[in-house]
């Protein structure tokens, strides 16, 4: 009786499900490999020092992406500088100060709502809120990105604050320290890992963002310093890719930018896992 193997029907089910799973995993893996190899192989040959170090010129009819690289760096810096205090502050409020459960629920619900809003809507609202008053410029784009990345910074900081042992806080309070002193000396140092993880994730998101920037930061390619850059319109790498591919048909340049973005994405993914592993290890000690 024991040697009777699975009925044909069960065997078929088993084979079918296993087959479907393997095909799906294979497809997903093949897709990632294809995208990586295709974009890199099309893009890397087009990356030259000249491309990286010049700006586009109508006279020589050559394209350079230096302004786009600079704009990307400026917008990342500006966004992080503004979003960090806001996001970390909001997280500290939620974990350390808030006593009213309804307010906590409201704030968390709002954060979830924000992370569900598509970037095109951010772009539109950013245009109405910022670009209409301060003009189309990198700063308007950065402010739009601040709203988009607020939930990310908030969430990662909150998660790391939850791992600060309650006994630390009690210890500090026991010594007669005031709330703010405890927050400053015990809580803030404990959220460094969350802040770093949040920054990495945000940088990734900013690098990939295009729809929210098109109407807020514009798509000019001028080389500027930081301050002048923030007050002038400018395209980030991602926006430049879109413009070159869709509007100008410059696929070589588009692929070069795509390859750069791809490499950056890989690096950011690695950094995020590395940081998370590092802090998880430190925490378990």
């Amino acid at each position: 009786m024991l040697n009777q193997s699975l009925s044909p029907k069960r065997k078929r089910y088993e084979m079918l499900m296993k087959g479907l799973m393997l095909v799906s995993v294979g497809l997903t893996a093949a897709l990632v490999l294809f995208l990586l190899i295709y974009v890199l192989s099309q893009g890397i040959p087009n990356i030259t020092w000249e491309l990286l170090s010049t700006k586009p010129s109508y006279l020589t009819e050559k394209i350079g992406i230096l302004p786009d690289i600079l704009n990307t760096i400026y917008i990342v810096l500006a966004t992080l500088v503004i979003v960090l205090p806001l996001g970390v502050g909001a997280a500290i409020y939620l974990t350390e100060y808030a006593s009213n459960k309804k307010i906590v629920a409201l704030i968390e619900y709002a954060a979830e709502t924000l992370s569900g809003i598509p970037s095109i809507i951010y772009g539109l609202v950013g245009m109405l809120l910022f670009s209409n008053s301060m003009g189309t410029c990198l700063m308007a784009g950065a402010l739009t990105l601040v709203i988009m990345n607020l939930p990310t910074i908030m969430r990662t900081t909150q998660e790391s604050l939850k791992t600060v042992p309650q006994s630390y806080r009690e210890g500090a309070f026991g010594l007669g320290a005031g709330k703010w002193r405890v927050v400053r000396t015990v809580v803030l140092p404990g959220c460094v890992d969350g802040v770093i993880t949040g920054c990495i994730l945000s940088v990734g998101r900013i690098l990939g963002e295009s729809a929210a920037l098109l109407f807020t930061a514009g798509f000019a390619h001028a080389v500027n310093g930081l301050i002048a850059g923030l007050t002038a319109p400018g395209a980030t790498l991602t926006v430049a890719l879109y413009v070159y591919a869709k509007e100008q048909g410059e696929f070589g340049v588009a692929f070069a930018i795509a390859a750069i973005l791809m490499v950056l994405t890989v690096i950011i993914n690695f950094a995020a896992t590395l940081v998370q592993k590092h802090f998880a290890k430190r925490r378990s000690i």
Partner: peptide, 19 residues
């Protein structure tokens, strides 16, 4: 595979558009 999937999530949408 989880690394690969995170990578897929991180690729900018314009790169998907370009390909």
């Amino acid at each position: 595979m989880q690394t690969a999937v995170s990578l897929l999530a991180g690729i900018p949408s314009v790169v998907y558009g370009l390909v």
